[in-house]
């Protein structure tokens, strides 16, 4: 695990720059020009889990993943590393969202961002981990293009569906109250944690029996 994180830390500055560019500056610019109403869509959060995709180029990643299997690293360790990477990326993303809120051009967006950020973060983490976990397994066997494309399509699909639902429910005062209630946030956090642990457990089991 230490070795894998050493690798991760080696290009962390580049990753942070990528995250800043793709998940903060680009959405902010889109928001500024009125292309999207950022606060109505969890798209940005969905994309946060994609850090694994940006970790290195597809060619480099698939070759490195394959080569690492000849070292004494347990398969469960490798899966756990990827899961931890996703959690870390979500947390970093949270801080970027705060930055995005500060940069937002309107007071309304700033307020909505600060209210909805935690809940969106938790729910997207749950879905994001499932999707990335799925893509990781495919990546070992199939080419990156297949898994990468699937990943992106799924992300966008889930983002827009969820974005639409949140957008609709925001019209209702009771739905907004529910989304912002502490109880709902706690329930979401617990459910997210359970789903996360289940996905990790399932991934380790599947990967242990998988050819690389």
């Amino acid at each position: 695990m230490k070795a894998l994180f050493y690798k991760f830390s080696k290009d962390l500055p580049l990753k942070l720059l990528l995250m800043l560019y793709f998940w903060t500056l680009v959405p902010w610019a889109l928001c500024l020009y009125g292309t999207i109403n950022l606060y109505e869509s969890p798209l940005v959060f969905m994309l946060a889990g994609i850090i694994y995709t940006f970790e290195c180029s597809s060619d480099e990643k698939s070759k490195f993943n394959k080569y690492m299997t000849s070292f004494p690293i347990k398969r469960s360790t490798y899966v756990s590393y990827i899961f931890l990477l996703i959690v870390i990326s979500e947390v970093i993303m949270y801080f970027f969202q705060i930055l995005l809120g500060i940069l937002s051009p309107t007071v309304l967006e700033r307020n909505v961002m600060s209210e909805n950020t935690p809940i969106m973060l938790l729910s997207s983490m749950c879905i994001g981990i499932a999707v990335v976990g799925f893509a990781v397994f495919w990546n070992f066997k199939a080419s990156f293009r297949v898994s990468g494309t699937m990943l992106v399509v799924l992300y966008f699909f889930v983002s827009f569906v969820l974005g639409f639902i949140i957008g609709v429910t925001k019209d209702s005062e009771s739905a907004t109250a529910l989304l912002n209630s502490t109880g709902f946030r706690i329930v979401t956090a617990v459910v997210s944690l359970i789903v996360f642990l289940f996905e990790w457990w399932l991934s380790v089991r599947v990967y242990n029996k998988k050819d690389v």
């Binding site: 690798k7 080696k10 290009d11 290195c56 180029s57 480099e60 070759k63 490195f64 394959k66 080569y67 000849s70």
Partner: peptide, 9 residues
């Protein structure tokens, strides 16, 4: 192995 692949950087 037939292909040695460390991270590029």
């Amino acid at each position: 192995s037939d292909e040695i692949a460390f991270p590029y950087n």
